[in-house]
Nucleic acid binder design. Structure first.
Lengths: 295, 295
DNA sequence: TTGTTTGTTAAGTAAGTCTGAACTATATTG
DNA sequence: CAATATAGTTCAGACTTACTTAACAAACAA
């Protein structure tokens, strides 16, 4: 294809054309666009020169767009609309894409379920500054609401939260663990407990379930960290309920009870947020990560 | 609506973006567009500045469009394509619309059937230079093919013509006329004839029909002008076959025979021609003109 | 290490875009 | 009719944009 340079029809000229198409006068059109009538007149004369057509006819001292020039007017509308779209997109991108992704995860997500996802993302988006915060669900969701974090992997909260949307990731079985060598009988013999703190979503789930089972709900000690809870059980300070991925390790010395409930891990995002491509990509990878075989 | 001026994203910049998207190097892209590498580099830097996004990432010393910038690339493609379309349209319009319409008509069309159409068109399009050529069908169609004429009203030719399209206008009855006072008996008594010249479409129609009727086909004299043919019949030089509109006048002294055939008048146009709005309009008026009551 | 390649920066020129003032043509008013 | 108002254009000047050439910086290859 022979490459003749296209005439440089400027967005500005097209805006002028749209303005005069519907304005009562060119002075009004110029005011609407925010330039002098002279600039508008000269800009449209230049557009005529570049296209090589006569866009207007004189009606007395007024100028009116020729009906035969409708295709140019349609073109102007179309190109200006497309330009508005891409500028709007760029504005949103600039605001959102600082090259930084703030990710919050509860510990089991970071350590057990998604370390591969994080590694893969980092190696393929080394231009993105991925900052990981490991904390309890409640705390993470607050940071998400405040804008400190962009994406959170946590336990599904008991209630909907305004402005936050959730996508399910995986379901974790929660199992009762007792001190080593202690046989586990019926629920009435379970406890006392070492659990996550009272403001923890998992804690609420566990207490409610124990109630239902007719087991004691006395809590002897608390910690946000599953490892600490395991050590407390090992020391005989109490029983706990943990996901299998955190309750059992190479040093599998705790007495393993039954699965009493399940908890849903989700990825959380501020609803209606400007979509940062990097955050989008990371969310996609989390969502499509197969479950880690801890069913 | 608050009117923030759109950034003036130039067609040129978008062309540069499209060129580098697929080129092995920016130097190659620049060569393809027809500018220096420096102009391309600066143009793209300006595009980045106007959009407020970083379109490229460095891969060693090379520059590669970020995959996240695909929407800008799509936009570039779209706008450049739209611009090519409107420029192409304008080019065609400029070539075709010279404010001149070359119209060819056979005499009966100009004088009898369509004088009102011509008058109306002229009064409502006084910016158009309408030039009328009156000549025989064959000659007019040749001029149409050569581009001398834009539109032709003539007798439908016996064969299709490459590159010319026809739209039917009206049907004219062709009637036998003999010298005044001479009774018109059967076809065997008709003739000799004064007819249009041998290359005339009407002439061919008449001769073929006379053959069919078993009448003489001897031609004593010829003329392209119907008036001349009438005078010859008045002088007793022979008989003729004319449309009623041309065979009968206020001086209705010829002997009127029977209608022996019909001929179709058509408007002819070069096929696939760039449409000049003025020519389009004239054709429309001819096509929708009611028949002139000469059935 | 030297030489080559890729893209960038600097300086200068031409063209484009805008402003405000002056001008031309048309419409309105008394 | 003359005087005034209105609509758009032209002119001159200031600033911006787009391009060229030459020099420069960084990366790559031998």
């Amino acid at each position: 294809m022979p490459r003749r340079p296209l005439p440089d029809i400027s967005i500005r000229q097209l805006e002028y054309l749209l303005a005069v198409a519907d304005a009562p006068s060119w002075a009004a059109a110029a005011s609407e666009v925010g330039v002098s009538p002279s600039a508008l007149s000269q800009g449209l004369a230049e557009l005529e020169r570049r296209l090589g057509v006569q866009l207007f006819e004189s009606v007395g001292r007024r100028r009116k767009l020729r009906t035969t020039m409708t295709p140019v007017l349609d073109h102007a509308r179309h190109v200006v609309a497309l330009t508005c779209d891409v500028v709007s997109w760029a504005d949103r991108l600039r605001l959102a894409n600082t090259g930084y992704v703030g990710l919050g995860m509860i510990d089991v997500a970071a350590v057990v379920h998604f370390p591969d996802v994080l590694r893969g993302f980092r190696s393929e988006h080394n231009d993105v500054d991925l900052r990981l915060t490991v904390a309890p669900s409640q705390s993470l969701l607050e940071d998400l609401q405040h804008g400190t974090l962009d994406l959170v992997v946590c336990v599904e909260p008991p209630h909907k939260m305004t402005g936050i949307e959730f996508v399910p990731l995986l379901i974790e079985p929660m199992i009762v663990y007792g001190p080593p060598g202690l046989p586990i009988d019926g629920p009435a013999s379970w406890g006392p407990w070492v659990l996550f703190p009272a403001d923890s979503h998992s804690r609420n789930l566990v207490i409610n379930r124990l109630h239902q089972l007719g087991a004691s709900t006395e809590v002897a000690a608390e910690s946000h960290q599953a490892d600490v809870l395991r050590e407390m059980v090992l020391l005989g300070l109490g029983w706990t309920v943990l996901p299998r991925s955190q309750g059992e390790s190479e040093r599998g010395e705790l007495s393993v009870g039954e699965q009493i409930l399940e908890r849903q891990l989700v990825v959380a995002r501020r609803a209606g947020a400007v979509t940062d491509p990097a955050v989008d990509e990371l969310a996609r990878r989390l969502i499509r990560q197969p479950a880690t075989g801890n069913e």
